[in-house]
Write a protein that binds this DNA or RNA. Structure first.
Lengths: 230, 230, 230, 230
DNA sequence: CATGAATGAGGGTTCATTCAT
DNA sequence: CATGAATGAACCCTCATTCAT
């Protein structure tokens, strides 16, 4: 019995260590989301980050090498979270116009419900959206589908893209400095659909549709770092 | 001669000194515009600024007290320059829809023609537009006039404002990363007018109108710091 | 079978464990020799050492407590290795002059043949030779014997010691930056014998004698870490 | 009179500033000599350097960028100082054998008289002598001249170079750990001349010649940082 | 007012060492 | 004993700001 080769001790230790690393990484990303939102994405963040996360200076450098590294990690995590939320809607809804309107409203809705997310996105601006699937994959696909199907009588998608994304970001900024009036997001979506060529009544009716309640996984980045729902 | 009663010699010296101050101030603002555009508005700027302007560290502090001071000064100067360009158009054009379309196109046109300006506005983002008369006075006025006159069938001006400003800034960012395709600005303006409620043909025809050539004073900030026209 | 009375199982396990410790210790010392040679004896070494040796950080601290500890261990090991090589020659040769000449040539010969050793001795300089038996026991003994027997007409051994050791180390440094020309070691030994008072022809003939080929134990530190013979 | 154009104010200010820079540079080099001698040339030195020199952290970086920068600056300064001392002797003495013996003794004499210099040279070892004119220009020249004139019956200068330099450095190390016995330097020089081929009596008589007292400029690096004469 | 050397707070980064698993 | 994540002291470096000239 004492000749038994110790049942894969490495495996166990390795797995435990990997899990610990994973948890610490998440903890740092969560804290970074908060701090970036409060201080801006260009701020020198490390001191505040480690004190927020309650870890040592050295630990930070075991996970990231630069400020920029952290920003990228947070951006990726945020993008993934948002996709997880939006994906079900996107698959259920066949109309690109509706998908765009819902996308704008969900984006703003998330930012409103999770102030940390809103602050981060607002502070980070375009830089933080570089790899955002919601914006860089879903939206272009919807615009193209809408144009090709004749629903959007537009020649180019680029101006439409700028219009949808720009409008939404402008509203996000407005939210950060005082909050959005009731119905702002819906009205904005309505304007966007108008611009894309829908008739006024249809634009309005699509943009006003009730939005299903968001469902987040309990271990979600937003749920944990979001500062709780508004 | 300089032994004469010296008719108010202080006046003369004072005036000369004031002019010198004025010139140095402009020189610093011009250099700052360039440097902010290249390095971003959050960068540590002073070293590069004074070497660009060719003055000493101490001189800088005779004119500004902090980094932020400089940013404000540049923003104000830029805003004034832009107003000086746009004002004639604004007074000549009675239709608020046309004024908005022209405003968007001129804004993007200036940024394109003067890369330093474009870079500065893009890098500075919203922060730099805080006191911009073009955006914060002219645009709201036009939107209200359009709504009140029934030309824009909208209830609120805020979403429309976000849409116009956001679209334009998104196009500005696009310009900074690769330039705008031909006709992008006009098409964008056309989308904006559509969103504001104009019929498609009218939106298009207004947005496509030829734009008068910009005229800059020879001593203009843009003419001097803009790196020359594109 | 393993249910047998197990004749002194502790003995066996203890012995196996001791052998494992011994092997790990050697592995660390070998790696340290390499790393000290490449990066210098003052470099921060532990990271590179453990990755070279392929062990974990914690394991290192099971064998050494500080950087300096490792340096001492390597120095001792190196000194012992060198003695093992030189001892046979020293016992076989009755003439102190010949022993000194052979010692200088063997020292340089080993450093040349085992680059890792050469780099280590050169980088470590005097610090690493503190406990070196070859230098601190054999050489003084030879000098005293030569002086007392009248072969070296010198009053003090200290200057002679400095001359022999210093010359050899200078040649070692030369070797590290470009290698030694043919015959350099022999000529140097000849100069040393001249300085010790031998007639020119005798000095030369002793210093030129052919050197027996070095023989290393196959498990020798040098054989394993030396990077193979040159 | 008040129209007078201020007689070259820049010249004056510029000159004063340059002198200030010069003085600060010297102050830093002096302090660095001390600190390198105490802590070794590989030590992290900046903190101690600035506190020794009594300047701020920032000032250091106005003059040097790295640890290595400082080491080079000190090495150059030391080399120049030593040359200034040795040069008169070198020019007055036609015999290369005598020049070499005097060189060795002066080198060791300086190191003994100015402990800071001795410590620095000893700690820095060969690295610090890279650009040393005394060693890299004067000595090779003397060896070649001696060989070509037949005074040194040697075929190669390289082993002789190693012997002279190595012996001297070994004595320097001995000095650092307990000081040199009386006559050590002279005896060492005598051994060196013997090795170079001089007859014993001549070697001895040259190496024993009284050495003229060293004269240092009062603003010399050694006089100021040397910790005073021994 | 212009100059530029000096300052030092603020932040960045490494690495020897500890310790729970 | 082996492992490797976590620690924090000790460095490194920049740059906004001051101030004597």
């Amino acid at each position: 019995m004492d000749r038994q080769p110790a049942p894969a001790p490495e495996d166990h230790r390795t797995r435990v260590a990997a899990e610990r690393r994973e948890r610490m990484h998440s903890r740092l990303v969560e804290s970074a989301l908060l701090v970036f939102g409060q201080r801006g994405v260009d701020a020198s963040i490390i001191d505040e980050l480690i004190s927020t996360a309650g870890v040592s200076r050295g630990t930070f450098y075991n996970y990231f090498r630069t400020n920029e590294d952290v920003l990228v990690a947070v951006s990726v995590a945020v993008s993934n979270e948002m996709l997880r939320v939006v994906d079900p809607f996107a698959h259920a809804e066949p109309d690109p116009a509706a998908r765009i309107a819902v996308g704008m409203r969900l984006f703003l809705g998330l930012a409103e419900e999770f102030p940390a997310l809103g602050a981060f996105l607002s502070r980070g601006g375009v830089r933080v959206l570089r790899g955002n699937g919601l914006i860089n994959e879903y939206l272009p696909r919807d615009l193209i589908q809408g144009r090709d199907s004749g629903r959007f009588p537009i020649a180019e998608t680029a101006p439409a893209f700028d219009m949808v994304v720009g409008s939404t970001l402008a509203a996000l900024h407005r939210m950060q400095s005082g909050g959005l009036p009731d119905g702002h997001a819906s009205t904005l979506a309505s304007l966007a659909l108008l611009a894309l060529g829908l008739p006024a009544d249809e634009a309005e009716s699509i943009a006003q549709r009730p939005l299903l309640k968001l469902e987040l996984a309990p271990d979600s980045l937003l749920a944990r770092a979001g500062g709780g729902r508004k």
